[in-house]
Design a protein around this nucleic acid. Sequence first.
DNA 1: GTCCACATGTAACTGGTTACATGATTGG
DNA 2: CCAATCATGTAACCAGTTACATGTGGAC
Lengths: 182, 182
Amino acid sequence: MSLPHAILTALLEKPSSGLELTRRFDKSIGYFWSATHQQIYRELGRLEGEGLIRALPTEQPARGQKKSYEVLPAGRAELARWTAASQDPKPARDALLLRLRAAAVVGTEGIAADLRHHLALHQRQLAEYQEIEERDFGFGTDSAQARLHHLVLRAGIDLETFWIQWLTHALGEFEQLPAESG
Amino acid sequence: MSLPHAILTALLEKPSSGLELTRRFDKSIGYFWSATHQQIYRELGRLEGEGLIRALPTEQPARGQKKSYEVLPAGRAELARWTAASQDPKPARDALLLRLRAAAVVGTEGIAADLRHHLALHQRQLAEYQEIEERDFGFGTDSAQARLHHLVLRAGIDLETFWIQWLTHALGEFEQLPAESG
DNA sequence: GTCCACATGTAACTGGTTACATGATTGG
DNA sequence: CCAATCATGTAACCAGTTACATGTGGAC
């Protein structure tokens, strides 16, 4: 049950319409909790129904008309409750590692090319994170908020760095492997 | 669509019953693709219906009676097709990082305790991986299969190491933070 | 004979994905 | 007026989760 809380967080940071939220979920919050516009509109409807957010009354509500939302006190309380509550980590699911395991049985054809593809994606993502770090945290950051945001960004940077290292290592191993290994 | 392929891989490694698969998904394959017994039974039924696996005829099929499956040629072909096909990585979803972001808005109460909890879990998982590495790959490994398995295990080890480092760093930051930062 | 562990399932629900529908606004 | 873009939505589907049901076989 994380999407509603991701939306509450985003709306507290800045009241927005559905499409604006969608764009922000394509970066920033979306870096570690992605969502499509369909999910977001559905969830906005639910949150409004539960009285956790409300549509800003300034705009007329109609299809094709922009509709912005803000968080109500009950919404902030719910987010605080969720944030403070302990949660067990979700079991991991990584299709690439699964494919390597499958490749050990049915052969490694096609895998190396995809490792290179993933490597390129992770390198691009890392570059994007580093740009953000330089722009937003290049000077000494002191506010508690900035520190927390920097901490999250650091996780992203280190995670991408891990993948780049591992993929590079894996590609090295593949060069030593016989062409077909099923 | 990874679960059926995870099951095909597991069954090719060793023909098994539903419960045996469930146990193997609690470790090994389950380290990077978890599944419950309900999912597994449902998927075994589908795979059998599609002619990709079949029940071993040695046991009578009844509720409460063990029923083992093996992969048919069509199943192996499907797994090979899936393994060779390029796939885009799934968008990331990490509730803990999302909570940190929320904590920047509504306060950090309860978070430090959970970071310590996660740290303990990751340390335990790392120890488990390292034990496996010593047991299965301590000596020089040369078969292509062993190398691929080792590669996957390495990803697990490095990933846990990353989390332990980041969580340790995060806890250090928290000690410097004011008690309430919302 | 009763309890427990083993083993296989069913049903209902929730969250995420894919495909499509509808209306408003703006530039040519 | 037409196409493109902005913006909000609906519907159907699929995968994963949670709760529960049913039957077997062995230990006591």
